[in-house]
Design a protein around this nucleic acid. Sequence first.
DNA 1: GCGTGACGGTTCAGCGGATGAACAATACGC
DNA 2: GCGTATTGTTCATCCGCTGAACCGTCACGC
Lengths: 115, 115
Amino acid sequence: MTDETRYQLLRRLATNPDTNQRQLAAELGISLGKLNYCLQALISKGWVKAGNFSRSSNKKGYAYLLTPSGIEAKARLTIAFLHRKMAEYEQLHQEIETLRQEVHALQQKPAEGPQ
Amino acid sequence: MTDETRYQLLRRLATNPDTNQRQLAAELGISLGKLNYCLQALISKGWVKAGNFSRSSNKKGYAYLLTPSGIEAKARLTIAFLHRKMAEYEQLHQEIETLRQEVHALQQKPAEGPQ
DNA sequence: GCGTGACGGTTCAGCGGATGAACAATACGC
DNA sequence: GCGTATTGTTCATCCGCTGAACCGTCACGC
């Protein structure tokens, strides 16, 4: 399981603890089996607790609540992610610059066009 | 096979046609098997031709040369990639902004710190 | 020429993660 | 109670990737 998935899941649960697994899976763009697996991982880490109450109108299923250590972990992951994403951003900037130059070069000498 | 791999491979071959498959695989960060598969795909598309001459000092192996239609395809892919990467760049910008706000919120209320 | 070693391309059994259909458990309405 | 609907859980299956093993070829020494 990637950090990305773990983080997105914690993020989702922090704001919407009463969402069923199928919907969570759909929202994160992963399969039901994988989501279930990730969720169990978070639970066994003690970051999430499955309370069997609530779920507004419908009493089935669980509510997946972040534990205090889960909240802490989410904070840590958030900061780590910010840094990671900023690095990706910079790298993407470089890639784009390279691509721009390549495209520019193409437009300089469109010699070998069709025909 | 991803477009990314396809593009990177064409890019590599355009500048260094006389590189063996093991080295190409290492440079692209993929396995030998996958590289071979991708290369065959490009060849069967008529974008790359394996000439069995050259390879400077050492006469073994092939030189993988881009055909005219391969050059054309590379140009198309380059432009498509520039657009895609720019979109990613924008999206990443958004994500970073969101993360910044989350981090900011954390620093506002570090109430539930350890102890 | 022949043998041999090194190198490069090709193959494919095996691995690992992801999938989602099927199953089990629970709550609801009657 | 019973049937149905909803949800969590499992696991056979798939699929792409891996890299060790294999085969052909070339260069060198004899």
